[in-house]
């Protein structure tokens, strides 16, 4: 696992550099999703690196970033795995860049299945994709990454209800449960608890994992693959993970570091 650990270290540095360079972007929720995406893209997802040029393209797994604001972690992961040139990360959020603030389909950036960014839509999109794959008898899986704050959007529950009612066994909802949203703690603003019981009641197989433990994440995703029901993986994470002064601090949801903070963060990540 040392390689994967190095991978997450590099992604964290990319996240800080991208948001510092753009003077805007979403750091906190990116840092909490680093291990989730690292395991998915290095160990689980079967998506050709040669994106739409491969003849097996239609057979690919699908990944939908429902929490579309965490483009720093998403773009960095895609680039570091090899979907596009790492140099492109420097254009993040700049005029004319294919690295839009939120994922954008028409920039043709490899790895983007659909534009997202308005919360609460990715799960139902995933349900649609899952049904389309079944019609074509394609056995791949659909993975949707949601934030815990995002689940306050009622439309998400329409998606949970649909997948549960149809017993779709080819969709995995991954919830980055970092317990914070812009205005403060999810617990205080509108609690989701008991999230596991709610999802089970909606017909989902629910697995819970330490969202920063690479081995556990791999095991839990492999287990999700075998499920006969839609599976939700609740990943317990820390918002801002990896940079001491950002950890557990809602203020770092969508703020760029100043020069001093940038240097401090990079120092910690390089240590």
């Amino acid at each position: 696992m040392t390689n994967l650990k190095e991978f997450t270290k590099q992604v964290r540095k990319d996240i800080i550099q991208m948001v510092y360079g753009a003077k805007s972007g979403h750091i906190g929720g990116s840092l909490s999703s680093v291990e989730i995406l690292a395991v998915l893209y290095n160990k689980i997802l079967n998506i050709p690196i040669e994106w739409d040029k491969s003849s097996k393209f239609v057979m690919r797994d699908r990944f939908i970033l429902s929490k579309g604001h965490v483009t720093p972690v998403f773009y960095s992961t895609l680039a570091r795995v090899g979907y596009f040139d790492v140099e492109l990360l420097k254009t993040f959020r700049k005029l004319g860049s294919s690295l839009q603030g939120h994922p954008c389909l028409f920039t043709k950036l490899p790895g983007i299945e659909i534009s997202t960014g308005s919360l609460g839509q990715g799960l139902s999109i995933g349900v649609g994709v899952a049904q389309g794959l079944k019609l074509d008898k394609i056995n791949s899986k659909v993975y949707v990454l949601l934030g815990d704050g995002e689940i306050q959007e009622g439309s998400t529950w329409e998606g949970f209800m649909s997948a549960g009612a149809k017993k779709l066994d080819n969709i995995v909802a991954i919830i980055d449960k970092n317990n914070l949203q812009i205005d403060g703690s999810v617990q205080d603003i509108k609690t989701l608890d008991p999230l596991d019981k709610k999802l089970e009641a909606f017909g989902w197989n629910v697995l819970t994992v330490d969202g920063h433990n690479l081995d556990e994440l791999e095991q839990v995703f492999l287990k999700a693959k075998e499920s006969k029901f839609p599976t939700a993986v609740i990943c317990n994470t820390i918002k801002g993970k990896g940079v001491s002064f950002m950890e557990g601090n809602a203020g770092w949801h969508g703020k760029a570091p100043n020069e001093e903070q940038y240097n401090l963060a990079m120092e910690e990540l390089n240590a």
Partner: peptide, 28 residues
């Protein structure tokens, strides 16, 4: 019947699922 999806009383779900079916290559 296998190509028809009644999502129930859930228009937001319907449009998002239609988007999903479209990116899976369907005309929804």
């Amino acid at each position: 019947p296998e190509r028809f999806f009644d999502v129930g009383i859930a228009e937001q779900d319907m449009i998002s699922q239609a988007a999903g079916l479209a990116i899976a290559g369907k005309i929804a």
